[in-house]
Amino acid sequence: MKAIISQLLAGIAFCLLCSTGTSLYAQDSLAAGQVPLVVRLPDPDKLEAMRADKDFLYHEVVQQDDSFWKQLRHKIGRWLEETFYKGRASGFWEFLIYVLLTVIVVFVFVKMQKVGLSELISRKAAPAPLPYHVVEENIHELALDVLIEEAIRKQELRKAIRLHYLQSLKKLTDAHLIHWLPGKTNRSYIAEIQHPALRREFEQLTSMFEYVWYGGAGLGTELFDTARNEFMQFDNLIKQHA
């Protein structure tokens, strides 16, 4: 039953379509046959006036006698126009270009001023330089022998002990028995020495150096000579273990 109804409806729809098409065709045939064709031409005066109007000039003529910079500016302008405006000029794209250009200019300026971008955004002010000068000594660049002799001559015996200790550290580093780093403490170096006898000797020297240098203990010539001998014996010990 359903199949019969659907076939009937399809037939009615086909008949209606055919009848509509026939009537349209009949109307077109009538219009073409009755109305004469009139050829219309534009007014020559109006055409001339429009040709002279600047608004209708679509070809910009670049003056050949312009300077190099003017020509470059024209070329960049035309490139930007073709890239972003051609056929789709809208306020959004114009806005985007201005935003991008502003960001680039700000970025270049900030970089030239050597300011970190995170510092601009965060609340923290740019770090100020330390208000004092930090002197860093490199024991490998010091002429320690000369400095020790000079300290002894001036009777600066505590300083001489210090220089002897630095010399021991330098010799241990040169013999690859320790790895010199500015932030390491004396105890770190003791822990680095693998040979027990050498470590024990260096520990003793370190204790003496610390008493003299950090403890502010004074030294007489006799004690200094004893201490100096110890440093020299230690140097020989390093040579044996190097």
Partner: peptide, 11 residues
């Protein structure tokens, strides 16, 4: 020997 030095400087 070091002990001698240490004892003295600790005075």
């Amino acid at each position: 020997m070091e002990e001698e030095v240490l004892t003295s400087v600790q005075e």
